[in-house]
Design a protein around this nucleic acid. Structure first.
Lengths: 219, 219
DNA sequence: GTCTATATACAGATAGAC
DNA sequence: GTCTATCTGTATATAGAC
């Protein structure tokens, strides 16, 4: 590889890295091109030698993510999970949460980008359905297997994705310190426990919590 | 009331009305001041005789909303709902959904505004907790009553709010036609049924769907 | 390939005429 | 009170020197 190309690769990596940091800190929409170049220690004009726009840069980051850490997505999976099984549901949510945590800058950027297109564009709905396609497949499997579900698999999947991604956006801390506690005082485990439990048995809780078949136990 | 003041009031109302339409169509972030004034049939400069900024206008819309339709929020409520009761949960969600539908422009604007502040600001988390304070109160009541809950009331409430508000943003149609079917082919009823059911009994469904107390029924 | 300097575009906000 | 015209600030993107 020529020296010029090597330097270019270094710069490109520095820009991407700076972008990730800026997105995580200030958000995608608030981050200006000059914020990225400044954080990368490069001149403003240099940016356009590597990316056509901020949107283009985001696509590059997305490609990187799918390239390397895609393992977490595909590697784990059996063809289908039984999401009514506590362990499997919890595991599935934990993987999703981990992916969001490990790629927080990109998640933030995609979220903000979709939202900036406005509600009429349907961009957010598209993102939601795309990100929950795997979930939908598992639910469709359950349905074919005869499991009674609360509704359309696609809609349930979207609802679950909405809950998870918005909580991730709101709760995942800026600094990905290894401890795993979030900005608002909730730990990852606490969040996952709550969401898993809520999605598994709802507010009413598991069947065993009240005497079986009892309509109402008066104090 | 003087004639000038009357004209001013008319203009102000026209601006607010145009803003609501624009927010619903293009989203809050994409709407420029000139979009509003143009839609209202007024000159650009006129805007600043009535509002200091777009943010200020949003606050005015919010105040209007709390003023008139606040009835839907306060009027209905007994001190607490038992959210583990199917009817009461469904009713609570239906009211929330209706408020979001009836005030879609403001909801959209608040959502986008909070998101534009970036993830570090905590604006979205604040919005989420504020909008679900009533829900949280109901959950705390249940907890004190001895009900087993999936986790912290505040966290559960936020999770529910996240699901509902994001679905509303993504699914509520641009044109608030009276029929009540959403842009992506789901009806309001379908969405409410699904969400209610999911939040009440989770993916596993009500206790009665499987033989009571059966760990696993092998085919 | 990277830098400095600058051109372009546009949204926010103001000033003065009517 | 409203309008037209304009000023200001800022972000994107390009041009030419090194």
């Amino acid at each position: 590889m020529g020296e010029r190309k090597e330097k270019a690769a270094q710069t490109e990596a520095a820009l991407k890295d700076a972008a990730r940091r800026q997105f995580a800190e200030r958000g995608y929409l608030n981050t200006k091109i000059t914020d990225i170049t400044a954080a990368a220690g490069r001149a403003a004009g240099t940016f356009y030698q590597h990316f056509a726009s901020k949107e283009d840069l985001l696509q590059a980051l997305l490609a990187d993510m799918h390239g390397q850490a895609g393992s977490a997505f595909d590697g784990d999976d059996r063809p289908v999970h039984d999401l009514t099984d506590p362990t499997q549901l919890r595991e599935h949510l934990a993987v999703a949460w981990g992916v969001m945590r490990d790629n927080r800058p990109v998640m933030i950027a995609l979220f903000e980008s979709a939202l900036a297109d406005g509600p009429g564009s349907g961009a957010l709905w598209n993102r939601l359905t795309a990100d929950t396609s795997m979930l939908r497949a598992h639910l469709e499997y359950l349905r074919e297997r005869g499991q009674a579900l609360p509704g359309e698999p696609a809609l349930i999947a979207a609802a679950m994705g909405a809950m998870l991604s918005m909580l991730a956006y709101a709760l995942l801390p800026v600094t990905s310190v290894s401890t795993g506690d979030s900005g608002s005082g909730y730990t990852d485990m606490q969040i996952l426990d709550t969401v898993s439990s809520l999605l598994l048995h709802g507010l009413a809780g598991p069947a065993g919590s009240e005497p079986c078949g009892a309509g109402q136990s008066v104090p």
